[in-house]
């Protein structure tokens, strides 16, 4: 891997310090600090308006913060020039909430587009690689010839994920990967993210409200509140904390149900062995 700064474990792939953002009078981030480690699945949660989407946009160079530094893969985003920005963009993949697929291209063309733009490959090679990513995300080969408008929400997200993966990124950003999906499709996305993690090497940063996804997959979770990180840790650790911003997520009926369910899962193997 072409990273000179990489230490095998625990090397921070994203380091955010003293980040401040405001829209007019509305303060979104106030001196926010955050680190994401290599190889983990990191989730950002928070109420609407807590600035998680803005944080994501700042990490992927779509929005410039008002103050503070963000370093992604060892590169400072504040004073980055166009060439360095392009080089960095090719090292991460982004799956947008609504897919962000180009409506004028077929799914296969969408997936192959980054290759056509940035690699010198002939059309056959591009199509082969795109078809491979399509299969990786569990879509049928026929889907490749369809246009994004013909796809269901779940298929759109998978196609978007395939496009995000086509340049073999080191970092993968997922914006609400399961929002707007029926439980079955959401479960399939869970499986897919799990498969990617098990593939190794990939650091995944996601914004989500999906408690199942958080309990099952996230290694660490940051809760945003009042422009700062209110708490950070695994879901089990967060469940023990008692800051009000964090409690909100666990105190509601849905939060409690997910908590109980996760406990049940932890207990289940044990219970099974007892029965035996």
């Amino acid at each position: 891997m072409p990273i000179t700064t990489a230490k095998p474990e625990d090397a921070a792939v994203i380091e955010i310090s003293k980040l401040s953002t405001h829209f007019g009078d509305h303060v979104v981030h106030a001196d926010l600090d955050l680190d994401v480690h290599r190889g983990e699945i990191f989730a950002v949660i928070g109420g609407s308006g807590s600035g998680k989407s803005t944080l994501l946009r700042e990490m992927i160079l779509l929005h410039r913060p008002d103050a503070g530094t963000i370093r992604v893969l060892g590169v400072d985003l504040q004073n980055i020039d166009d060439a360095a920005a392009l080089a960095l963009r090719l090292r991460w993949g982004v799956m947008f909430q609504h897919g962000g697929l180009f409506g004028s291209l077929t799914v296969l063309e969408n997936i192959g587009l980054p290759l056509r733009e940035h690699r010198t490959l002939d059309d056959a090679a591009v199509d082969a690689l795109a078809a491979q990513k399509l299969a990786l995300t569990g879509l049928d080969p026929e889907v490749g010839a369809q246009y994004p408008a013909e796809l269901s929400g779940g298929m759109m997200k998978r196609a978007s994920l395939a496009r995000a993966l086509v340049l073999e990124p080191e970092l993968l950003f997922l914006d609400e990967p399961t929002a707007g999906l029926d439980p079955e499709s959401a479960g399939e996305v869970d499986q897919l993210v799990r498969k990617l993690r098990d593939g190794g090497g990939l650091t995944i940063i996601m914004i989500t409200h999906d408690l199942d996804l958080l309990w099952q997959l996230a290694d660490r979770v940051a809760v945003l509140g009042d422009g700062k990180v209110a708490g950070i840790g695994s879901m089990a650790e967060l469940a023990q904390m008692d800051q009000p911003a964090i409690r909100k997520f666990f105190a509601g009926p849905r939060g409690r149900a997910a908590l109980e369910q996760s406990k049940g899962q932890a207990v289940a193997p044990h219970a099974a062995s007892l029965r035996r």
């Binding site: 963009r89 947008f96 609504h98 897919g99 962000g100 697929l101 587009l113 733009e117 496009r163």
Partner: peptide, 17 residues
């Protein structure tokens, strides 16, 4: 405008186009 709403413009930027 439609591309901006469907995040296609953002996607374009993140794909380095």
């Amino acid at each position: 405008g439609t591309m901006a709403v469907t995040e296609e413009i953002d996607a374009m930027r993140t794909l380095g186009i």
